[in-house]
């Protein structure tokens, strides 16, 4: 069963941190992805561009509306994701707890429905 881990964090706070601190956080994410890979649980995972770089597209009555990000005033924004293989929700939650984003932001875990 595949699960997606949505990583929420304070993007601004991250960019305000000293370089060494940023490196430490990136290093923790690398360690986490490696642990996922070496345990055979990793499917894929990537960081996302900043919320302000996002665009929302709506097609209404033949015209296209494009809105610039960020789309939410929330302090914690979606900043990355992992797709993992886990035997059940508890195992997925266990991985989520180890994800560095869980310690200073939040991690949302959702099952992925496979349509075959």
């Amino acid at each position: 069963m595949q699960y997606i881990l949505f990583l929420y964090g304070d993007e601004e706070a991250f960019h305000d941190k000293p370089h060494a601190e940023q490196e430490r956080i990136v290093g923790e994410h690398m360690a986490f992805s490696q642990a996922l890979s070496e345990s055979g649980a990793m499917v894929s995972g990537n960081p996302l561009g900043r919320p302000s770089a996002g665009r929302i597209v709506r097609q209404r009555g033949g015209s296209q509306l494009v809105e610039n990000g960020p789309f939410s005033d929330a302090k914690e924004q979606l900043g990355g994701y992992y797709i993992i293989e886990a035997s059940d929700l508890d195992e997925a939650l266990d991985w989520a707890a180890k994800c560095p984003a869980a310690s200073d932001g939040a991690v949302e875990v959702r099952p992925i429905w496979s349509i075959e």
Partner: peptide, 18 residues
């Protein structure tokens, strides 16, 4: 160490190992 950091669910332990 990298593996141990990736498997820790406590931020203070991750920093210590790093």
């Amino acid at each position: 160490y990298q593996r141990a950091i990736g498997l820790s669910d406590d931020a203070s332990v991750r920093s210590f190992l790093a």
